[in-house]
């Protein structure tokens, strides 16, 4: 029992560290990719290729003046970024980063908690994530912030539905809500990946994930042209940093979810034919999983610089009148086909 607990603790720390590291370097990657797509070089001053830039940013965030506006609700104003950040971090608990390691005859799964309601847990955590933004916007005592947070709230609630229904189709396929089971079910040849079975579901999920992360083209809660900075207009220093950071963590979690649910997670197609030792296979799988995650993070950034922002009514129209019906149709189709196959 004790080694097990120790292992879990280590795993938690590693995943926390990895998440933060990836989120940190996502900021760097974002700037770099944006620059590249605009035929620029991007940050290249701090360290080799500007690799130390995130650290410089962090230093800057920490050393800036921590300002709280006069009319603001001090408690909530301080609490909001913390909520945003912690809910963003919480979701990574159920993500299976790899198969189990076998050390000393004991099996250590590379997943912090294999909840049997993993998918529901994710949507629960995501639905709480909106509080950070809402409270932040409201506590700032600023019209733009309030508008931004109200937008965020309605946007996130709207897209949660489509996302949830798209996930239901996946749950129906695998017969389990545990992400570990969902990933395991995709083992084997590449066409076992859910993307080939649920292409429509993936498109819906992906779109909703973009909206849930407040990423372009759905970044209306913080659209600079209309609302200055949206819900974080009044924020400065590390509080702002937490908000921005939470967004990147969310992006990381979404990417991980997408690759776990639709792209086979840590499964490498046909790897079982190589007859590798179990631990090696697990390590390779984890690496492959992270490659997928990086791919999706890059995809998020590519999309950001490709597609212009939606108008608010278009956003609601897309969410309620296109994605939700499509998701329901997808779910029904899945159900019918599963019924026929049985």
């Amino acid at each position: 029992m004790l080694p097990y607990i120790v292992f879990k603790l280590i795993l938690v720390l590693v995943i926390l560290g990895l998440t933060l590291l990836i989120a940190t370097y996502s900021t760097y990657a974002e700037r770099k990719i944006a620059a590249f797509m605009q035929d620029r070089l991007g940050p290249d001053r701090a360290g080799k290729f500007g690799l130390l830039q995130p650290i410089a940013d962090a230093v800057k965030f920490f050393t800036k003046e921590d300002f709280i506006p006069a009319g603001a609700d001090r408690v909530l104003f301080t609490l909001a970024p913390a909520i945003a950040m912690s809910t963003a971090l919480m979701a990574s608990v159920v993500i299976p980063f790899g198969n189990s390691l076998i050390l000393n005859g004991m099996e250590f799964p590379l997943q912090v908690a294999n909840l049997n309601i993993g998918v529901l847990y994710i949507s629960g955590v995501v639905s709480i994530g909106v509080y950070g933004i809402m409270l932040g916007g409201w506590a700032s005592n600023n019209k733009y912030s309030l508008l931004g947070s109200i937008r965020a709230a309605s946007q996130m609630i709207s897209y949660e539905i489509g996302m949830g229904i798209a996930m239901v189709a996946i749950i129906m396929m695998s017969g389990s809500m545990s992400l570990h089971d969902i990933v395991q079910q995709q083992a084997g040849p590449i066409w076992k990946w859910n993307i080939f079975v649920q292409p429509l579901g993936f498109i819906i999920f992906c779109t909703c994930a973009f909206a849930e992360c407040n990423r372009t083209p759905f970044d209306l809660p913080e659209c600079e042209q209309e609302l200055v900075g949206g819900y974080h207009t009044e924020y400065s220093s590390m509080k702002l940093g937490l908000f921005l950071f939470a967004e990147y963590v969310n992006m990381f979690v979404s990417s991980a979810l997408m690759s776990a649910m639709y792209f086979g997670g840590y499964n490498i197609p046909w790897i079982e034919h190589l007859n590798l030792p179990h631990n090696v296979e697990t390590a390779l799988g984890s690496a492959f999983f992270f490659i997928k995650i990086f791919f999706f993070i890059a995809f998020f950034m590519f999309i950001r610089w490709t597609i212009p922002r939606f108008r608010y009514d278009q956003l609601m129209h897309l969410g309620w009148r296109i994605l939700m019906p499509l998701a329901i149709v997808n779910m029904l189709l899945t159900g019918i086909i599963l019924l026929l196959i049985q």
Binding site: N116, G124, I128, Y131, M134, A153, I157, E160
Partner: peptide, 22 residues
């Protein structure tokens, strides 16, 4: 009742209370 707990969080914290706050 883990399932119920998750649904409880999603429904109450995730939807109803957001509506109140809204």
């Amino acid at each position: 009742a883990q399932f119920l707990a998750a649904v409880h969080v999603i429904v109450y914290a995730g939807a109803i209370m957001v509506l109140f706050l809204f």
